[in-house]
């Protein structure tokens, strides 16, 4: 099928089709205020809000790209970026096929998923111990 036979919906990113873009950005502002006043962080699930085609992009465009961009490899790729507004993060989870499976706006000083997790640190400690033990054993056997 040639592209000309496809009906093009004339929906521009600039058109404000639902009333959800502005309130959402205002909510982010309130969340920032809460973070400053009380230190409490907020998570907004972008998939729980009815958005017209192009509106998610519009929100992301307004928030822009800041100083931090991190890639996680945990059950597929995840992307954690700080927007141009410090304290406002976009967390995007992908599956193995690089499809977005969930996307959140996190208003926090550090998204939880970036921190090393206690359980993982404990597991790492014992794993490292085992590795060192093995090395020692190997050294003893070698000598």
């Amino acid at each position: 099928m040639s592209s000309s036979t496809v009906v093009q919906f004339n929906i521009q990113i600039g058109d404000e089709l639902t009333f959800n873009v502005k309130p959402l950005l205002n909510e982010v502002k309130h969340a920032l205020d809460k973070l400053i006043e009380t230190g409490q962080s907020t998570v907004i699930d972008l998939r729980s809000i009815p958005l017209a085609p192009g509106e998610e992009e519009k929100i992301l465009n307004v928030l822009g790209l800041g100083e931090v961009q991190a890639r996680l490899d945990a059950l597929g790729l995840s992307e954690v970026i700080e927007t141009r507004y410090a304290g406002v993060w976009i967390v995007t989870h992908y599956n193995d096929d690089d499809h977005i499976i969930s996307r959140f706006i996190e208003v926090t000083s550090m998204p939880e998923i970036l921190c090393s997790q206690t359980e993982d640190i404990m597991a790492a400690y014992s794993r490292l111990g085992l590795t060192l033990n093995d090395e020692q054993k190997n050294n003893v056997e070698d000598s």
Binding site: V43, S48, L72, A74, L75, V91, H93, S102, I113
Partner: peptide, 26 residues
Amino acid sequence: REQGISRRSFLKFCATTASMMALSPA
């Protein structure tokens, strides 16, 4: 844990599950 799936992966799983169940991220 036996399968070597990290806590971080588990958190990602939980976040996606919450989104899937239409539950608040809280």
